[in-house]
Computed example of a mutant assay.
Amino acid sequence: MSDSATSLRILLTNDDGIDAPGIAAMREELTAIGEVTVVAPAENQSGVGRARNELAVRRDHPWGYALEGTPADCVAYGLRGLDTDFDIVVSGINDGPNAGNYVVGRSGTVGAGIESAFLGTPAVAVSSYHARDFFCHPPEEYDFSRPARIARAVTERVYGTGIFDEVDLLNVNAPIDVPSPRMRVTRPHADYDQQVEHHHDSEAVPDGDREHDIGDDEVYVRLQDISWPDAVGYENPFPLGDEHSERYPVGSDRRAMVDGEVSISPLAVHHGHTNDPKLASVVESLSEQVE
């Protein structure tokens, strides 16, 4: 253990729920480099992004606390509701990847890291993928020890180096099944579309998705992400590996996954801005017109 990590106080959370295998593997590794307190959702909260609740129920857990809330709720409570000044927040391990601008923006795993950054604490969000199966489902059938070791090494090495002076959080995607994978600094790749289906007959909608029979003036609308080429919703996009390699440039988080690498994307939580002289001109002219 490095000197910078000897007294690390780590807040650990996730979005798959406190009983998920990924967070258990992550906790086991992190206890070797610091004092770990877990505040994690009581149930699965995947895909909730940065959603917050004003009221949540807390339950004692052998590792810390289970919260009836979102990952961002857990971080907000952990950083402001406990008598510990945490050095860093680690979120994960998610049992599936979080790569690409759109997916990252909706991820509960990354959402926890964003909440942490807004509250002034650096964060590492960790997700896993399988180089053939893509998603690690069901998670009980996968071994999360490799991404846990990778996440531990990243957390230990980056803390105290000054990296978080400019970077708010690191988004890590690590393969479960690739021995000694290469690590690469990446950027989230923008690749997203949406498929929309209209169902006028409620019988055309699967029972699990059907809330009620629809009336004459109602239509079921199904919205499905196309966040990888030729994959709608939660399909496995990896069989077309060669085509993906051509589509995604080296240095993107998507390409790193296609190549079986560890993707580490430095992220900032501020929304940023662009100095656009055309917009400045329009605003100036509006100021002269509007009294």
Score class of each variant (00 low, 15 high):
Pro71Ala: 07
Ser116Lys: 01
Glu43Asp: 14
Ala42Arg: 15
Arg50Tyr: 11
Val154Gly: 12
Ser107Val: 01
Arg132Lys: 12
Gln45Gly: 10
Val57Gln: 13
Tyr65His: 14
Pro97Lys: 04
Arg149Cys: 01
Val103Arg: 11
Val75Asp: 06
Gly69Ile: 06
Ile150Arg: 05
Ala24Asn: 06
Gly120Met: 07
Cys74Arg: 08
Arg59Tyr: 10
Leu79Glu: 02
Asn101Lys: 15
Asp60Pro: 02
Leu79Phe: 04
Val103Thr: 10
Leu55Gln: 13
Asp85Trp: 04
Ser46Asp: 12
Pro138Ala: 02
Tyr65Asn: 10
Arg59Pro: 00
Arg157Asn: 13
Gly78Val: 05
Val90Thr: 09
Gly113Thr: 02
Val124Lys: 08
Pro147Tyr: 03
Arg59Trp: 03
Glu35Ala: 11
Leu82Asp: 06
Ser91Arg: 08
Glu29Lys: 11
Val39Met: 09
Asp87Met: 05
Asp85Gly: 11
Arg50Cys: 13
Ile93Trp: 04
Glu28Cys: 09
Glu35Ser: 14
Asp95Gly: 14
Ala51Cys: 07
Val124Cys: 06
Ala148Gly: 01
Glu54Arg: 15
Gly49Lys: 03
Glu35Leu: 06
Asn94Arg: 15
Met26Ile: 00
Thr155Ser: 11
Gly100Cys: 07
Gly111Ser: 05
Val124Asn: 05
Glu166Leu: 13
Val103Cys: 07
Val124Phe: 07
Arg106His: 12
Leu55Asn: 13
Tyr77Ser: 02
Glu43Pro: 09
Gly69Trp: 08
Arg52Met: 12
Thr161Trp: 11
Arg157Phe: 08
Arg149Asn: 01
Val104Pro: 02
Ala76Asp: 12
Ser46Leu: 14
Ala123His: 07
